[in-house]
Design a protein around this nucleic acid. Structure first.
Lengths: 338, 338
DNA sequence: CTGTTAGCGCCTTCAA
DNA sequence: TTGAAGGCGCTAACAG
């Protein structure tokens, strides 16, 4: 049995409500009483029971986040680590805690959301990987439940924070053009994948602005698929001398294929990836990459959620784009305009 | 304001405790009453308030896990994703939830543990990255708080689940020996790192058993450091024709150095890494790797914790080793005994 | 079998 | 300023 305010009250010879007041920092408690109580609190190493306090205050001091894990692909996703770190980093000073759930299907996801909200286990949620006509939004809005979307929620009027993927695509492309590359191509992801499409838009914009014809190859995710795609690209009549590649892992696939063909990086092929992940180290001299500043994104989203939970901010359409930045390494060091 | 059992009771024209009984599946509720209540529950989409139930039952139906994030190294750690997935996978069917905390220093970590336990926010914890004389154990044991250590807790008598790193080292080594490699070396981690030392022991055992002299190079973590170390190894008089490398990322560093020197993999240099991570795909034909079956490990640990929380198992010394397995790919395909 | 009652530990009026 | 009392929503013992 844990120690309660009642126990403290007895030992300090005051009423339990006085103990509660001292803990709350109530200014109108007599100094001597306060000291007595605080000494006992210290001595007994008292911590307030979170559940009881929450029951009374009608709040859990917890926020939730629901990950989606397609089927059984447990392959360590580095994003989760960043998500958890950044969220707790913001939540902790505000005395909030993080409850993480994992859904393996859409049906389960829906149930988890419902349970999370209606059982009052959390005071707010961060919604990941929004889908086009996302059933979660209606439910959350109807319940007036505080939430923030990370990603692109589409047309619905909800609070969201996102990368600027268009800018990211343009940034990578301009960088290669400025390095003097003559035929900058892009290896993108599968069709209809939102962030891929956005980066393509940025790429195309930048190419058009430079008066160059864009050239995009679609590829499945992963380094292996990207290697195959790169092979197709190098097989063409006028193969690219630079590639913007959808992410770092895929860029490594392209590098590996280039090496197989005896192409030198960056002399024969310059590359820029996305995410600025640890993978960039795997290329000798480093892989240039667009840092999406996911950390900032998560922190922003969490801060906004906090504001909403505190009732200082209404739950309404809001769209913040976190700027990205280019980390130049050897893979794109072609040295000035050709 | 959320809907309560009281509301349900009124609408079904029964007492609130009957509602509670129906929810608890109490067999001795009359069938007609039960149906009436269940209809209302359904209609109102009732979910039990987790806090209130917990307060009464003296349990939170939550377990905690505290990650340690040294300073500001947010670099996405893929382990976190696996940890969270596997824990929730086991917890969910048991109706438990996961509360994740992140500590950036030892002091903060201690405080988080104390708060987590004493504020009764969770019913049990999974303890990661145990240290040699870990202050957490004493505290947890004294409070009779359910916990399981993932990793090697050393001499203290606590429940733990761990990889079999010795076996892992031996497995990798034997595999290379059986492939006909003549001089199998090992690139290990920094001194005194427990799992590295254990894998070295396995390596040495296997080499001795084969009548071969072991040769170990110590290296800092990361592919870059491993590349330097590999260079030193290749510089020796009788360079290794095969390497057991502490992890996949470091193995990639070695591969990259080998390629630079014109060595073919696996003909001139065979390799085996550890973790069977996604990085293995980055080597053409694949990097052979020892799968540590972290998923099993986490699931085992979580299951044991559940048992302890349910009071079906005491909190005492327990040490379970999860077996590992070798995933052979092209990087070690030397084709039978030479 | 069902309803009434008594808390779980805390916060917060309301009187004193 | 302090203490007594009520109630957050729920479970469980006790009557009936």
């Amino acid at each position: 049995m844990r120690i309660t305010q009642h126990d403290i009250a007895r030992k300090a010879n005051v009423s339990q409500s006085t103990v509660s007041r001292v803990l709350a920092g109530d200014a109108k408690v007599d100094a001597s009483l306060r000291r007595r109580v605080q000494e006992v609190l210290e001595a007994e190493n008292y911590f307030r029971n979170a559940r009881a306090a929450g029951l009374r205050k009608r709040s859990s001091a917890q926020v939730g986040v629901v990950l989606k894990r397609p089927a059984r692909s447990l392959e360590g996703d580095p994003f989760v680590s960043v998500l958890v770190s950044c969220m707790t980093e913001v939540l902790r000073p505000a005395d909030y805690h993080l409850c993480v759930e994992v859904a393996s299907s859409s049906a389960e996801q829906a149930h988890i959301y419902e349970q999370l909200l209606r059982s009052d286990r959390v005071d707010g949620v961060v919604v990941l990987e929004p889908e086009m006509r996302d059933a979660r939004f209606a439910q959350l809005l109807e319940d007036r439940f505080p939430f923030v979307v990370v990603g692109d929620p589409g047309e619905v009027a909800v609070p969201s924070v996102d990368n600027d993927n268009v800018m990211a695509g343009a940034l990578a492309t301009r960088h290669l053009l400025e390095a003097g590359c003559a035929r900058v191509g892009m290896i993108a992801g599968p069709d209809e994948v939102r962030f891929s499409e956005d980066r393509i838009r940025g790429y195309v914009q930048a190419m058009r602005a430079a008066g160059q014809p864009p050239r995009v190859w679609h590829s499945a995710f992963g380094p292996r698929a990207a290697r195959e795609t790169a092979r197709r690209a190098f097989d063409e009549d006028a193969p690219p001398d630079a590639l913007v590649v959808l992410d770092d892992a895929m860029a490594l696939g392209a590098v590996s294929e280039a090496q197989r063909l005896g192409l030198r990086v960056p002399e024969d092929l310059a590359l820029v990836g996305f995410n600025d992940s640890g993978l960039c180290e795997l290329v000798e001299g480093g892989l240039s990459s667009v840092a999406l500043n996911i950390e900032d994104l998560i922190r922003k989203a969490t801060e906004e959620l906090l504001e909403m939970m505190r009732g200082r901010k209404p739950i309404r359409r809001t769209r913040e784009l976190v700027p990205c930045s280019l980390v130049a390494r050897r893979s794109s060091a072609r040295g000035g305009r050709a």
